[in-house]
């Protein structure tokens, strides 16, 4: 399949040749674009670099760096992509190219989950007078940054500012509703062992924990009542306390785990099913 596609590309080049044969650089660029379009990003970079090596005009530079950066991004090499998007900014002559390069850097930062950096870049971009009219777009990516930073409240707030982003706001709200409170889970299991686990949806585990704590507690108290203080201390320390501590640990872990699952489910939805603009 891949080979056939390759032939197809070559055939495409053949056709293109007849159109562009006057200017080798243009031809070369078209060839590279074809490779890019057929997802052969590594080879596309080679050909873009070739164009750049033989034609060093500044306006071409910005354009090609942008393409190379896109190739790296498509190959999940985000560090390299960011480097090249940054080079676009240095060579570009018009503001709109600079703006999209900067947005791309933010998007790469979102993808590699360096969300603090992404937020910082959003703020810088917002302060830049040249891009005052693009506030909505910046905010859109700020919202995405918050989602990738697992801060769904802030994301919901940001998406709420623009009616166009209603779907994302709804998703954020769903996540917020589905999440459990780790503190609450921990605190209630201090009071009633097992309740935190049940609250996070692990009913069986919660009941087992409760049973162990009741049993160990019973034996401990019994030993003290029967004036067997030593046995009481031993059972209390080695058995009861152990299960009591384990119960709190579990309550906390299950709550964290549950939240983790909720976040990942939403992110999975964004990756696979969401139809809007994605990083």
């Amino acid at each position: 399949m891949f080979r056939i596609r390759k032939y197809f590309v070559l055939f495409g080049i053949f056709c293109l040749q007849t159109i562009y044969s006057q200017n080798s650089v243009e031809t070369q660029l078209a060839w590279a674009d074809k490779l890019f379009a057929s997802n052969q990003y590594f080879d596309a970079i080679t050909e873009y670099k070739r164009v750049l090596f033989f034609d060093n005009r500044n306006e071409l530079k910005a354009k090609i760096y942008f393409k190379i950066a896109k190739c790296y991004k498509a190959g999940a090499h985000l560090d390299e992509a960011i480097n090249f998007f940054a080079s676009v900014g240095k060579n570009a002559t018009n503001d709109s190219t600079i703006f999209s390069a900067k947005l791309e850097i933010i998007r790469c930062n979102i993808l590699r989950k360096t969300t603090e950096r992404a937020l910082q870049l959003c703020n810088e971009l917002e302060k830049d007078g040249r891009f005052a009219s693009n506030k909505n777009e910046i905010n859109y990516w700020r919202g995405w940054t918050y989602m990738f930073a697992d801060d769904w409240e802030s994301a919901s707030k940001i998406f709420g500012e623009s009616p166009a982003d209603k779907e994302l706001k709804l998703l954020c709200n769903q996540v917020i509703d589905a999440k459990v409170s780790v503190t609450f889970a921990t605190v209630i299991s201090y009071i009633l062992p097992g309740s935190g686990q049940i609250y996070s949806g692990k009913i069986l585990s919660g009941l087992m924990s409760l049973a162990w704590n009741l049993a160990a507690g019973y034996f401990t108290v019994n030993a003290f009542i029967a004036n067997r203080a030593f046995d009481g201390i031993v059972i209390g320390e080695l058995v009861w306390l152990r299960f009591y501590r384990g119960n709190i640990e579990n309550a906390k872990n299950f709550a964290v785990e549950k939240n983790f699952e909720v976040s990942n489910k939403a992110l999975k939805f964004l990756q696979n099913e969401y139809r809007g603009l994605k990083p």
Partner: peptide
């Protein structure tokens, strides 16, 4: 098909004025 490809390649390498290849 192969002939077509090879000719295309040849063309790509020699057809332009300043031959990058």
């Amino acid at each position: 098909m192969l002939i077509l490809i090879s000719s295309a390649k040849l063309f790509a390498q020699s057809g332009a004025q300043e031959d990058l290849f």
